[in-house]
Design a protein around this nucleic acid. Structure first.
Lengths: 342, 342
DNA sequence: GAATAATGCTAAAAGGATTTACCAAAAATA
DNA sequence: TATTTTTGGTAAATCCTTTTAGCATTATTC
């Protein structure tokens, strides 16, 4: 039953005028191009009547802009990325942009392949959580005049805009929080990876421990996606081997979830036996008994900055496209009774 | 520094042959169109050498297919939808399709506007969790030959393919499970909405209660997005007013999260004071102490069926495009010690 | 009244592909 | 040798817009 899509040509023919005229009117250039008001009105009415909508595809081809932004993250089903997705979606749509998402699984080859397929789709911009070894691919992208914005993690060696958070500083603060509440044997649970944000968190922990002259206990779990079933068990073993630990700092929330299970299995109580803090706040931490302290990334601000930066770069007027480097502060939420061990 | 994109025309000129020939070779029609092997090889090598990639935009314009599928859900940051997103992404990309997402917030006007903007972008298909009052919009879509697949909820009054789960049956089972474990005053916590899946869950509960001749206690919370802060408190009031309740059935997981908080505040213990079950399983339910029973929707199968149906509809060969109506069974996970109250 | 300026509009190119219809030249057939 | 068939390709239309350059008229100026 598919009724044939009406084109600008059809309109021109029906009205006995030229395509050019219709196009000018459609693009609000009637005045500028000296189309008479009478004709303008007539065309506008006809357009409304037949419900004509220009083909975005043809426009994109002609103008070389597709009004599409790619949102390439490690895993779109991860709550953190999904939340950002939701927020940038809103802002993008408001500005006439659509968002295509994809997940890299932190696999460089997959990331490269995805970027390649998007190049040929003439997307306008990329918001990316880079995988390792993506330097040259991203540099190319920037050279080819795509708008590129890294987030969550960045790549120090290349010249590219980004929006990230203060990983090291917040990790330092969180560790210090544990220390100030009586912990001196604090374990750091993280994941084996080149991801710079993870490294920065480790640095923050390390620095805080060194400042106080405390020994470090670090558990580097293998990186995997999806989350391995045995993760909780591995943490449990680590806790048993280091039974003197009185504090735990999880580098990201899904590690904390697994860790909480391990603590439960071992009948270690929070906050009496162990003080816990996690990077990346989560609804769960407030639900869990007792509530778990966590570092909250400013999702709303991150999203807002992401779109702000994107739109700035996409807007040809702006000369300085290389000055958008945003580092945002996090918030440490102290939740379990904080003087538990004092 | 943006190096100019090379086009099929450039190749033809460089090699001193016609555009047509290049196109035939690119599309693997060299043999069919009787292009000599010599020339074919020469062109293929040149293409590889200059790294030519056809413009997807131009192809889409010419062929009328964009290889884009819209994934329109209530809220992409919801774990359920985000998980589906992740899974269909994989399958879509494997088949050369990209996915644009958008969230309706369950607002019919927003949904209609979104669908309108996508029509002009010549997307090929829509995977939709319909809002209320979307009947005519979706019928139009189907009439205009877009591939449309509803999921999570469907619209009985219109002729459109879908992939859903057995809401009523599973709700009946879950309620029966509570009854079999000694509950006879079971509260049903749901949300005020026209969404058919919510209604079906209510029906399942109602039926089970009526079969056993037990009184029903239903709490209809106002629909809202994002989740209201006072939700937990409202559930708490309900529990206080109906202090004789010994079982609770939550129509969806985020209600259960709020409910668990309320139970905690009221010092009601699970399973001793109250047996609980929730629709939509969640990682949390396994983490929570004690573990919470829940009905798990088959995410993997749902995703697989969605893409299977989509691809089938997009594949022009298939004649019967109206025969894809899938209803999938869920799994009830019984987690707290099941004989608690026997 | 002739030259200039303004008015109102349009033809055609461009963007990058696919595809139909056709055309020479060479080979095969009669 | 004359005719038909096959081979190896190409020109041009098409998808739908945007935009440059220009062209008749009419109005204005001197």
């Amino acid at each position: 039953m598919a009724k044939k899509k009406i084109s600008i040509k059809d309109i021109a023919k029906s009205l006995g005028i030229s395509i050019t005229t219709v196009s000018f009117i459609l693009n609000g250039k009637a005045k500028e191009k000296r189309i008479s008001e009478d004709l303008t009105k007539k065309v506008e009415e006809y357009i409304k009547e037949v419900g004509y909508k220009p083909s975005h595809l043809a426009q994109s081809l002609r103008l070389g802009k597709s009004k599409v932004i790619v949102f390439m993250v490690e895993d779109i089903s991860n709550q953190f990325f999904a939340s950002i997705a939701r927020k940038i979606e809103e802002k993008a749509y408001k500005n006439g942009y659509k968002i295509i998402y994809c997940s890299t699984n932190n696999d460089p080859e997959k990331a490269k392949a995805l970027i390649e397929t998007f190049k040929v789709r003439s997307v306008d911009g990329f918001i990316i959580t880079p995988t390792p070894n993506l330097e040259s691919t991203i540099t190319d992208l920037v050279d080819e005049d795509f708008a590129v914005l890294l987030f969550d993690r960045w790549i120090p060696s290349i010249d590219c805009n980004y929006v990230i958070v203060e990983n090291e500083k917040s990790a330092f603060e969180a560790t210090t929080h544990l220390i100030n509440n009586g912990c001196n044997k604090i374990g750091f649970i993280t994941v084996e990876s080149d991801q710079i944000q993870m490294n920065d968190r480790l640095k923050g922990y390390t620095k805080a421990m060194e400042v106080h002259g405390f020994p470090k206990d670090i558990l580097m779990l293998p990186f995997q996606n999806p989350v391995d079933q045995g993760l909780s068990y591995k943490i449990q073993l680590f806790l048993q081997k280091n039974s003197e630990l009185d504090g735990l700092f999880f580098a990201t929330n899904y590690l904390a979830f697994e860790g909480l299970q391990a603590l439960n299995t071992l009948k270690k109580r929070i906050p009496n036996d162990m003080l816990v803090v996690s990077f990346d706040d989560h609804y769960f931490f407030k639900l869990f008994q007792p509530n778990i302290s966590a570092i909250e990334q400013p999702l709303e601000v991150i999203s807002q900055k992401l779109m702000e930066g994107m739109l700035m770069m996409l807007d040809d007027q702006i000369a300085d496209k290389q000055g958008f480097r945003i580092i945002l502060p996090n918030t440490l939420h102290v939740r379990e009774s904080s003087d538990a061990k004092k």
